[in-house]
Design a protein around this nucleic acid. Structure first.
Lengths: 337, 337
DNA sequence: CACGCTATATAAAACGTTTCCAATTGGAAA
DNA sequence: TTTCCAATTGGAAACGTTTTATATAGCGTG
């Protein structure tokens, strides 16, 4: 009845074969005579046998489980990524142990060690910044680690990203193309390389290429949230030389920006143009609908997990550092050309 | 160097004790002389020993891992819940294996069996509807299962929820209190008991108590998404007898409703009043800010996990069926009294 | 009809812990 | 000193698989 506690041994006895044979049929090993296979299968069904994955893991040294470290699963961005990971994990018969790090170095390291202790077959890591200590732990890892939406800061780790620099360039360039001589940039903490180096330098490069001056005051730091976007824009609006075009580092901040503008009595896109980043579901949940850089979160997760399975199966890998394409989804927060 | 493949046996040899003793110090068993403990600890540090959780799980029959089944982690609602679960899980030294079911019965059952095969110590389940087949599997489960934000449809399972019926009543009553003789109700699929029975009956009860007639046409079904809320409201607006007060079953649908109203040239809250449900972050990311029923998702997750730990530790449990308080967060999508 | 294969099946040794029980040790009491 | 009991430690058997090496059966061949 209780499918619990019936072991491979019980099945073997029931079927009148050895446990090795049962193991073979359970694992689909072809070296079993069809009649024997059937006999065993019947016994399995009759007893309601369910293989113990823990014992299996101990004997085979494979757990068909991978660890996933995210800063915060309640963030829509990582939730989407996680879904991509889980979907292809399921496809390849893996399960996911999920942990939140809050981008905190100690939690990251602790989580990593817990995961390794649990003998995961591999790990997918997301985080704003790769602390040196963490990378040292990575290097000691007996299992492969792949980065998702996380820059490989000069370390030789497999990673899946988009070209953030170019994406920021494209967004800024589009705004400049609409005649703006000044573009505001509201982004996340600069110590996270993705903001501080990639997006920022894409922004600057677009300015430079257009022969526009860079003004320190046109870049304002937020913390990715709606509230921080709102506040950043409010501050900007107080200035006499406030830019009329804004590139926000996340959609959520972009929504804050738009509302700040509207609250001040201006119109988007007539008075101000705004472009966001990520193309989360939020982008269409605002009026005007948000023009945004699409970063395919789900795909990044899916591709990262697929890459991990390739590594685990020792398949041929053409490129360890995959860069997915990005594009700009034009909606109503910018004027039509 | 490679902290891998050093076993308890290696540590025992290095420290000149038996593996039983090493096991004791690793597990914090007090029956070890301080000097011995130190000796062992040094050996552990020197060798970089990390206990193998799989072996440990096999020997002790405890994995300190719990399974979490959600319909879709990329849904902000479940993501929040999951975060609550994970946080208290971490607090109690558990890890989380996360799986998405898409509320699909077969996936739910398959996931459940996979999780049991992995010998999780317990399971937290979220889903719209408890299929009978699933419940039968639940009954056979050798480990405890607790429901989170999921109605315990007459089955005797531990569960954590809010009082959906009363919440819907409160929301509807508030709207009626503002003078409306007609209240629209835009909700999710009625076959999910939470909508079909609880919220719906709360809505009706409020109508009844106010002596207002119930009109079939005032309730429209959506699928929880922004788009479905938008569409439902658009349809409603075409009618001559369109209600001027709307209670939406989720915040996301409520946003759609507000935009549909605004797109039609009306004002919220002057022409129409809207209240949502859940109090997700979305509620403040719209103008006017959304008045909504607060369902504490994070807390539900946290409490569910805490309840599970109590069951696992065989602690005293005052109430298996916990009902968390709800309230209405008044913002700007309804008029002030 | 014995021989040598191949295809199957078995036995037993890992895998790395925990845990029960027995053995040893250390001190305090006698 | 002995004696005893409590504190500490050690030995070895589980835990439920996979896997390797070995055995057995069946069968076509010469």
């Amino acid at each position: 009845m209780n499918s619990n506690n019936v072991t491979i041994y019980d099945v073997a006895r029931e079927a009148g074969v050895s446990m090795a044979t049962v193991s073979r049929v359970v694992n689909g090993n072809p070296n079993v005579k069809p009649t024997t296979r059937k006999k065993v299968q019947d016994a399995i069904d009759r007893l309601g046998y369910r293989p113990n994955a823990v014992a299996r893991g101990l004997a085979s040294k494979k757990t068909t489980t991978v660890g996933v470290i995210v800063p915060d699963i309640s963030n829509i961005f990582f939730a989407d990524l996680a879904r991509g990971i889980e979907d292809v994990a399921t496809m390849y018969k893996y399960n996911i142990i999920l942990g939140n790090s809050d981008s905190n170095r100690d939690k990251e390291i602790h989580l990593l060690n817990t995961l390794l202790g649990k003998q995961v077959d591999g790990i997918i890591f997301m985080g704003g910044r790769l602390h040196e200590d963490l990378v040292n732990e990575f290097k000691k890892s007996p299992v492969p680690i792949v980065l998702a939406a996380t820059l490989n800061q000069g370390y030789d780790l497999p990673a899946v990203n988009i070209d953030y620099e170019q994406a920021a360039y494209d967004a800024t360039e589009m705004l400049i193309g609409h005649g703006h001589k000044q573009v505001g940039f509201i982004t996340g903490p600069l110590e996270q390389q993705i903001n501080g180096e990639k997006k920022f330098s894409g922004y600057r490069r677009a300015l430079d290429d257009a022969g526009l001056p860079f003004r320190e005051s046109d870049v304002v730091l937020g913390n990715y949230t709606y509230a921080s976007g709102l506040e950043a824009m409010q501050k900007m609006l107080e200035r006499d030389d406030c830019p009329k075009a804004i590139f926000a580092g996340t959609d959520e901040m972009a929504l804050g920006v738009i509302h700040a503008i509207q609250d001040a009595g201006f119109s988007v896109p007539n008075d101000f143009e705004v472009v966001g980043h990520d193309n989360t579901r939020l982008a269409t949940m605002i009026r005007p609908k948000l023009t945004t850089v699409v970063q395919p979160m789900y795909d990044i997760g899916a591709v990262a997990m697929r890459l991990l399975t390739k590594i685990l199966n020792a398949e041929e890998i053409e490129e360890k550092n995959v860069v997915l394409p990005h594009r700009i989804e034009r909606r109503d927060s910018v004027r039509q050309d």
